[in-house]
C-alpha cells in the first residue's frame, strides 16, 4: 500500500509540474506572439527607410533601430531584399551594412552554447556575406565535434567568401557530406574557381564531379577542351558528368564517339546521349533520336523528343514519326511535348 501512496504522490506531483510548465508555455507563447505583432509593425514602419538606403542608395537616409525587435525587423527586410534583388550594388550595400552593424550579434550567437543558435547565425552569415566573421568560421571548421549541419554551412560560407581555401576545409569534412551537398558547396564558388577545378583535373573525383555538375548548370564553355579530355577519365562518374557538360555546352567530337551511351543499359546515360545529340545536325542524329524516342524509359523519350523539337524542321519530323511509327508511348510523348505547357490540350 505504501508504494501505491508514493505513486499517487508522484502522479499528483507530475500534474503540478505539468501545470506549472503549461503556465510557463502560456507566458512564453503570449510573449512570442506579442513580439511577432511588434515585428510586423516595425517591418512596415522601417520599410521606406530601408528601401531608400539599400535599394535607392540614398546615403543620407538613416536606418536606425533602438530595440531588439526593431533590429530583427530590419534584418527581415534585408533578407527579403537579398532573396529577390540581383543588382550587385544593392547587394553590396546590404552586405556592408549587415557586416558593420549585425556582425557583433551574429558573433555572440555563433559563440553561444546553443547549437540551433549557432546554425541560425551561420545561415545569416552566409546570406549576408559577413566577411568579418570568416576567421571564426574557419576556427569552427577546424574543430572535430561540430554538427554536420554546422560543417556544411561553414563550408558554404568559405566557398562564398574565401573560395581558394575551400578545398582544404572540405577535405577534412568530406566523409560527412552527401554528393548533393558537395555540389551545393561548389555551387557557391565563382565561375573562375570552377574552371580552375576542372582545368587542373582535380585529383579528388567527388570535388571534380561536383564542379562538372555546376559547370553544366551554369553552361560554362571555356574549359571545353579539358572536358573532352575528361571523357577518358578513369572514373565513370567523371566521364558521365563530362558528357553531361558537353550536352549543355556543345562539342566538336563526332557523335559516334559517344555511342556507348546510346547502347548503355542505364536510362540516364541514354538520356545524356539524347541531350548530346541536340548539338549536331538533324541529319546526323535523326536515326539515333528516332530510336530513343521509342525508348522504354520516360526520361529518355522525353529528352529525345525535346532534342528533335529544337530543330527548325523538328515539327515535320514529328509528323513523319507519328504517321510511320506505331508506338503508343512515343505518340504519347510527342503529343505531350507538342501540347504541354500551352492551353491547347489534345482532345481524345
Amino acid at each position: 500500500m505504501t508504494g501505491i501512496i508514493w505513486l499517487s504522490y508522484g502522479v499528483v506531483a507530475a500534474f503540478i509540474v505539468l501545470f506549472l510548465i503549461t503556465i510557463y508555455v502560456t507566458v512564453d507563447t503570449k510573449k512570442f506572439q506579442k513580439r511577432q505583432r511588434e515585428m510586423a509593425a516595425y517591418v512596415q514602419e522601417h520599410t521606406p527607410a530601408c528601401y531608400a538606403y539599400f535599394v535607392e542608395g540614398n546615403e543620407q537616409q538613416k536606418v536606425i533601430c533602438s530595440t531588439s525587435t526593431e533590429f530583427e525587423a530590419i534584418e527581415t527586410i534585408a533578407e527579403s531584399y537579398i532573396a529577390y534583388v540581383k543588382d550587385d550594388a544593392i547587394l553590396q550595400r546590404i552586405y556592408r551594412y549587415m557586416d558593420a552593424y549585425y556582425s557583433p550579434a551574429y558573433k555572440r550567437q555563433f559563440r553561444g552554447k546553443s547549437r540551433t543558435q549557432r546554425i541560425n547565425a551561420l545561415y545569416q552569415m552566409l546570406d549576408f556575406h559577413i566577411v568579418s566573421l570568416l576567421p571564426e568560421v574557419k576556427k569552427m571548421l577546424a574543430k572535430k565535434n561540430i554538427a554536420r549541419k554546422e560543417r556544411f554551412l561553414g563550408l558554404k560560407i568559405i566557398a562564398t567568401l574565401d573560395e581558394a581555401t575551400t578545398y582544404e576545409f572540405y577535405r577534412h569534412a568530406k566523409k560527412s557530406l552527401a554528393a548533393n551537398q558537395v555540389t551545393m558547396i561548389v555551387n557557391c564558388m565563382s565561375d573562375d574557381m570552377i574552371y580552375d577545378i576542372v582545368d587542373e583535373k582535380h585529383a579528388d573525383t567527388d570535388w571534380l564531379v561536383a564542379a562538372l555538375k555546376v559547370m553544366a548548370k551554369r553552361q560554362l564553355a571555356y574549359s571545353s577542351f579539358i572536358v573532352h579530355e575528361l571523357l577518358y577519365h578513369e572514373n565513370v562518374a567523371v566521364r558521365d558528368e563530362a558528357v553531361n557538360v558537353l550536352s549543355a555546352i556543345g562539342t566538336e567530337k563526332s557523335l559516334a564517339d559517344f555511342e556507348e551511351y546510346f547502347y548503355s543499359e542505364n536510362p540516364e546515360n541514354r538520356m545524356l546521349f539524347a541531350k548530346l545529340a541536340a548539338q549536331y545536325t538533324l541529319d546526323d542524329v535523326q536515326a539515333y533520336l528516332v530510336v530513343l524516342a521509342q525508348d522504354k524509359s520516360f526520361i529518355v523519350r522525353q529528352a529525345a523528343i525535346q532534342a528533335i523539337g529544337q530543330y527548325t524542321n523538328g515539327r515535320a519530323m514529328f509528323e513523319k514519326m507519328l504517321a510511320s511509327i506505331d508506338d503508343a508511348y512515343m505518340h504519347d510523348a510527342i503529343n505531350a511535348y507538342l501540347k504541354g505547357g500551352s492551353a491547347d490540350v489534345a482532345v481524345d
Partner: peptide, 17 residues
Amino acid sequence: IMESWLMKRYMTVKDIW
C-alpha cells in the same frame, strides 16, 4: 505542452488551456 511549445506561432493561450 510539446505541441504548444513548437506551435506557439499558431496556438492561442486559450487553445493551450
